[in-house]
């Protein structure tokens, strides 16, 4: 069963004019967000994006942008409270199994 998180919240942006259709974004995306059509990449399942940043990092022409981060409430709360995250820190915790 494919699970989808909140609607219309992710920061993923694709500049279709820059895209050269290499398809690497589609290859590295762990949630099938992209499809290729007419030699260009297209975002077909935006809400499935988890902002891991794999596509943007691997885009050879910088056509993709995303504010990447870890969707972890413990980490986000800790950094909001000015503490070093116990989650996903050097001492790996919850998600880092």
């Amino acid at each position: 069963m494919k699970m989808i998180y909140l609607r219309n919240v992710v920061t993923l942006r694709l500049d279709a004019d820059k895209c050269i259709g290499c398809g690497l974004c589609r290859e590295v995306c762990p949630h099938g967000v992209f499809a290729l059509s007419e030699g260009r990449s297209r975002i077909t399942d935006r809400d499935a994006c988890m902002e891991c940043g794999a596509c943007a990092r691997n885009c050879p022409v910088d056509a993709l942008w995303v504010q990447n981060g870890v969707g972890c409430a413990v980490g986000i709360l800790n950094s909001a409270l000015g503490r070093k995250s116990g989650c996903c820190g050097e001492k790996q915790a919850c998600c880092c199994g």
């Binding site: 998180y5 949630h31 969707g71 972890c72 986000i76 909001a80």
Partner: peptide, 24 residues
């Protein structure tokens, strides 16, 4: 439940931030 977001492979940081703002 909110704390479990970090254990999943499909939650985005933007989504979790939005959730934290109203849920906490």
């Amino acid at each position: 439940g909110l704390m479990f977001t970090g254990c999943t492979p499909y939650t985005s940081a933007s989504g979790v931030r939005r959730e934290i703002r109203w849920a906490i």
